[in-house]
Design a protein around this nucleic acid. Structure first.
Lengths: 323, 323
DNA sequence: CCCTGTGTCCGAAACGTTTCCAAGACAGCC
DNA sequence: GGCTGTCTTGGAAACGTTTCGGACACAGGG
């Protein structure tokens, strides 16, 4: 920038003003500066810029799990888009279901002076974020130990929707597969139970299976076991996209054809031998909303108390839940 | 840091030394400093750190297209892992097939003083990167106008593999669907032609279809048209995962059952009514290799001339390519 | 002619690090 | 004791921006 100033024959401050919109600079001077900028191929050093007091870097951080899961990938993509429109970059922190690793990653990102954090939190304590002075938005599930914005889907409603649908078909032995200790699957189970209660039925607890892992493999194994029960379930509710996959895998080998409903839509769900009925929500909107909210917080535009935004779910009937 | 120095009753430089490994500091002093750090909850400001001359920020940039495409998502995930192990964060720049937007995104990232760039490039000119002084690794395809490292898969070999396989089954009318103007699909086509030549056959150019877009929809439409030809192809080669999906969608409605081979494996490929035969490669390894290479370049460890790393493909027979 | 206000511009200070030079302390050796 | 070398330590300079107070020129009003 000093070079530009010299070349244009102006002061340092003038160049800075031109770069930042150019208010209070004569047109003629400004164009001289711009010419110098072009000639020298000058580019503002964002790092130095972010060093000034009060200024935060124009980056947001996004901390989430496995990007290979389309659910997370969609959040990443959509929040990236929104942030990009405002000239913000997104720094990614990927964490594999490890509370300690997550904390470390977050600390790292804070050290990088990001303007805000979007976190798909693990179940650990997040109170360490309270004093960091950085706005935080939680995505998909709330975190313990801190009051902050949260954007999520209507898990309970979705779980209820799935169970209602199956109950209405006359199923009474419905198994539900749950990924371990996530907030979301807990809520989905609650909705599931609500549906039973409303129908005047009681849940058979032996059909509520807590998986040791949230993987397709774990679901596959569990489903096989369920279907080999003396009295196997006539329907299954898989509370996660990967779990749904595992269920379907297991069912290929069994000659029974229980009804299946999955939570979260997935690519090719309609192309499988029996198209899969799912409870879906607008994941992209989840990411977009979170990013917008965070940008507002970061810019100081929005000083409302912490928001809690819940996006609706919808049942998509494709066949597997109706047989 | 100044506060820490005051609190520990030492000089500024001493604190800095402790924070960075603590060589040349007495143990007793060092622990006093560490105590002060803990008490004050001090955290190094990475931004200020990156400002020092010569120092680059400990961030890599990754520029790629739609994260919703499992191909890109896998690259993102695996490179993130490798970078994370070295304490590097990854800044994401997503671009939607827009050369101008890509250039802007890259400039932005350079302004953020990233230590290196991993780019899945568009076909535009990338010579503007030459003078940037930042190491660059291209992923999946080379870029024009600049000599740099490149990590990719054996597209030509893969294309040939697919065609060979189909020819060996006795197919002679094989259609190939190509996404628009990508380097990769061009190479796959070349491999395809090679296979024909080796077999002493000639390619029917009316079955080489250049799609206007790389989407499933475009492939679906094109496939429908192909299958309504007076003499439809007996086999199809889809040169991209999304294209494969489109092909399969179209084929559901047609009562012919041509053989299908796709390039790139995808989730649930083995679960479809006819499991899909694909030419696959280790995409995660692609990302890992790129990240490792870039880290070596960034640290100055590796000063070899630009590398060109090609990962092998393998045919996975599942049924659709063998009927 | 003087004063005031406006429009433009300059350049120093500050941000939080790292690094380098200098200096102090101390031991070992002659 | 004096000299030399090693081990610690302190503190200033530098990195590239933004911002702020001030300076200058000029016009207009009294």
């Amino acid at each position: 920038m000093i070079d530009v100033a010299k070349r244009a024959g102006v002061g340092l401050g003038t160049v800075s003003r031109v770069v930042n919109g150019g208010a209070g600079v004569r047109d003629e001077t400004a164009s001289r500066v711009r010419a110098a900028i072009d000639e020298l191929g000058f580019q503002r050093n964002e790092v130095a810029r972010a060093l000034r007091p009060g200024k935060k870097s124009s980056s947001l951080a996004l901390v989430l799990g496995d990007l290979t899961n389309p659910f997370y990938a969609t959040i990443a993509k959509s929040s990236l888009e929104v942030a990009g429109q405002d000239g913000f970059a997104v720094v990614l922190g990927s964490v594999d279901e490890d509370p300690e690793g997550e904390k470390r990653a977050i600390q790292e990102l804070i050290g990088r002076q990001v303007a805000g954090l979007m976190i798909v939190p693990d179940q650990g304590d997040h109170s360490f974020l309270a004093g960091a002075g950085v706005p935080v938005v939680f995505v998909d599930r709330p975190a313990h130990g801190i009051e902050a914005d949260i954007v999520m889907v209507d898990n309970e409603g979705g779980g209820r929707m799935a169970a209602d649908h199956l109950l209405r078909q006359g199923h009474e032995r419905i198994a539900i597969l749950l990924a371990p200790s996530y907030y979301t699957t807990g809520r989905r189970l609650r909705g599931f139970r609500r549906a039973y209660r409303s129908a005047g039925l009681t849940v058979d607890e032996s059909l509520v299976v807590q998986l040791p892992e949230g993987t397709a493999e774990a679901a596959e194994k569990a489903t096989r076991e369920l279907m080999h029960l003396p009295e196997p379930p006539t329907a299954l509710f898989a509370s996660t996209n990967f779990l749904t996959e595992g269920v379907l895998r297991a069912l290929r080998e069994v000659n029974a054809e229980p009804a299946v409903v999955g939570f979260d839509d997935f690519r090719l769900a309609d192309m499988l031998p029996t198209p899969v009925t799912v409870v879906a929500s607008d994941i992209a909107e989840l990411g977009r909303t979170a990013a917008r909210l965070l940008l507002d917080r970061a810019s100081g535009t929005d000083a409302r108390p912490p928001q809690r935004i819940v996006l609706p779910c919808a049942l998509i009937q494709r066949g597997s839940g109706e047989r």
